[in-house]
């Protein structure tokens, strides 16, 4: 087990370093000059522009040797300094993100967990029952094939506008202010529901298909055939198959995290939900590079954290890894 965790942590550490490096590298080596872009918005004469350019280059430390810039970047990062947002000047990027983060957690954690549980349940049912299979599987395939934002658009249009039963923009009604009141809570819940539902449905489809296929595969496994040969009731055989299919599904959950996060970003854009996705879109449209970098880092950290939690769950559930027999889950 220590070996398993050591290996995982190595991968996460490498991933983090790589991600931070990319985060640092891309603005510096992409064609185009962020400072020039920034200055292009204030029209000044060329001489003044040159002076300002030099000034900003100095302020941002861009006149230092590259390796110093790189180390400085890490230094500031480790102190939790991600720079100042340009478009919400002079709010620090960390603060801007901290304001958006709760909405993401509110949206993503229930969507991921519920779609996983429900998907596994229905997938297992579908593997058992041909009639249900003919209903669940096509629907599940349909949901996984849908782009997140399109499902979000459809839900917003139909439930929000055609039927008019749910709000489709913002995190709470404009007339309200955040408070610990029932009215505010209800408004929060109403606004949360549609973004949640679109994330849930797409995730549900993928998980249900995965579980169904895994169970069918497990039912062909030697141990399942042996149990059947000993006259075990179908219920018992399926219970064993379900237990074994759970493990790859847990790994699958970790692998799907990146996709769900991407889905959350665009879903937030559709519903103007004030999470990191909306923030990112605003940052991109306003070329707020520090904010883009900051959002990127938070997404990376979130996904790594999610992976780590999944790893722990895996070890708890898999006797093989727990007893240190193998280092590499499927």
């Amino acid at each position: 087990m220590p070996r398993y965790f050591a290996r995982k942590l190595l991968i996460y550490a490498l991933t983090f370093v790589l991600a931070v490096t990319i985060d640092w590298l891309i603005p510096r080596f992409m064609p185009g000059d962020p400072i020039a872009n920034m200055l292009a918005r204030v029209s000044v004469n060329t001489n003044a522009a040159q002076v300002m350019h030099d000034y900003y280059a100095h302020v941002f430390g861009l006149d230092l040797p590259l390796w110093r810039q790189y180390l400085n970047f890490w230094g500031r990062l480790l102190q939790g300094d991600l720079g100042i947002s340009l478009y919400l000047f002079p709010t620090p990027v960390t603060q801007v993100i901290a304001r958006a983060l709760p909405y993401d957690i509110l949206l993503l954690v229930p969507a991921i967990l519920l779609s996983w549980f429900a998907g596994n349940r229905f997938g297992a049912l579908a593997a058992r029952n041909r009639w249900l299979d003919n209903v669940v599987s096509p629907v599940a395939y349909l949901f996984t094939a849908m782009p997140y934002m399109w499902l979000a658009i459809l839900l917003a249009w139909y439930l929000g506008l055609v039927l008019g039963i749910l709000p489709i923009a913002g995190a709470y009604a404009f007339s309200l202010h955040p408070a610990w009141s029932a009215a505010f809570g209800l408004s929060l819940l109403q606004h949360w529901f549609l973004p949640f539902l679109s994330l849930f449905l797409v995730g549900f489809g993928g998980q249900a298909i995965g579980m169904r296929n895994l169970i069918i595969y497990e039912l062909e496994a030697d141990y399942a055939r042996y149990l059947e040969a000993l006259g075990a009731p179908q219920r018992l055989v399926r219970k064993h198959a379900f237990g074994n299919a759970m493990l790859p599904q847990i790994t699958g959950l970790a692998l799907a995290l990146g996709v769900v996060v991407a889905g959350a970003l665009v879903t937030e854009v559709v519903f103007s939900y004030p999470g990191i996705g909306s923030l990112l879109l605003a940052a991109i449209q306003r070329q707020d590079y520090f904010l883009i970098q900051g959002c990127f880092l938070f997404i990376i950290i979130g996904v790594l954290l999610g992976n780590f939690i999944v790893d722990i769950a895996y070890v708890v559930l898999d006797p093989r890894t727990r007893r240190g027999m193998t280092g590499e889950p499927a």
């Binding site: 030697d222 141990y223 042996y226 093989r320």
Partner: peptide, 9 residues
């Protein structure tokens, strides 16, 4: 397949 007939988990 007796060697793999028992559920490993």
């Amino acid at each position: 397949f007796a060697m793999s007939a028992l559920n490993p988990r």
